[in-house]
Design a protein around this nucleic acid. Structure first.
Length: 230
DNA sequence: GAGGAGATCGTCT
DNA sequence: GACGATCTCCTCT
């Protein structure tokens, strides 16, 4: 099982309230084609409340996964016990274990009965650096928090992101990402992301030519290889 | 810095 | 029994 740091007893910080004021995205936002949702999620906040503290990151890289028309999608072969969340109402977390080692976090899209989702591939951390570093098993000191080469090890990549936010299938699969009460939610702080690029998705062999990866160009947390840009 | 191999286990056939 | 939406470590250049 992946190593996951359990909730610590760290007290809420004064800055947390500022992040929590950001408005959670509505269910309607996710109630549409993942190809529309994925680019719109760039620049939004992913928040995680744990152990009385708050972890915050800005979404900088996503991938869209479709239904039966997308052989790379978990929903392609139909509904199973594992992927049931994808066929449920939109805006819910789909967490799965890959390669027997790593968790990956998605959010369900489309109306109930239709399967589709967006995979979170990378975050730019904004708050909770120390917790994320501990959760990742990294020894980062305060001075390292301004070093992009070290910081990108926190949350660049879908599995790193989950480990940094202490997200597991047991705790988070199926939770409502439009609600603060769920402990994992997505919010809009009115940050305007102007430039967005697309490419083929990373690390897949089926439907590999579909340009369903979306990212913020130049952002240090974005994956830098194994995908062809457009 | 780049590239390759190994780790590891849930899910599906 | 085979496969996989990944990551880390090690080796080579």
């Amino acid at each position: 099982m992946p190593k996951v740091l359990l909730a610590s007893s760290s007290a809420p910080r004064r800055g947390d309230a500022l992040w929590e004021r950001a408005a959670p995205l509505s269910r309607k936002f996710f109630d549409r084609d993942p190809r529309l949702v994925a680019p719109c999620l760039l620049g939004k906040l992913l928040l995680r409340r744990i152990g009385g503290g708050l972890l915050v990151g800005r979404i900088v890289e996503t991938e869209a996964y479709l239904g039966a028309d997308d052989a790379a999608a978990h929903a392609a072969a139909g509904r199973t016990q594992r992927n049931a969340v994808l066929f449920g109402p939109p805006g819910h977390a789909y967490v799965y274990l890959t390669y027997g080692l790593h968790y990956c976090l998605n959010v369900s899209c489309l109306p109930e009965g239709d399967a589709g989702c967006v995979l979170f591939r990378a975050l730019a951390p904004l708050a909770g650096f120390s917790f994320m570093a501990r959760a990742r098993g990294l020894k980062l000191y305060r001075g390292d928090f301004s070093d992009p080469r070290k910081m990108r090890l926190l949350s660049s990549g879908p599995a790193r992101l989950c480990q940094a936010l202490a997200i597991t299938r047991a705790e988070n699969n199926g939770t409502d990402m439009t609600s603060r009460e769920s402990g994992v939610w997505i919010a809009d702080d009115d940050y305007q992301q102007r430039e967005i690029r697309t490419s083929t998705r990373i690390g897949i062999t089926k439907s590999a030519r579909l340009p369903l990866r979306y990212y913020i160009p130049g952002n240090p947390y974005v994956s830098q290889k194994r995908a062809s840009s457009q």
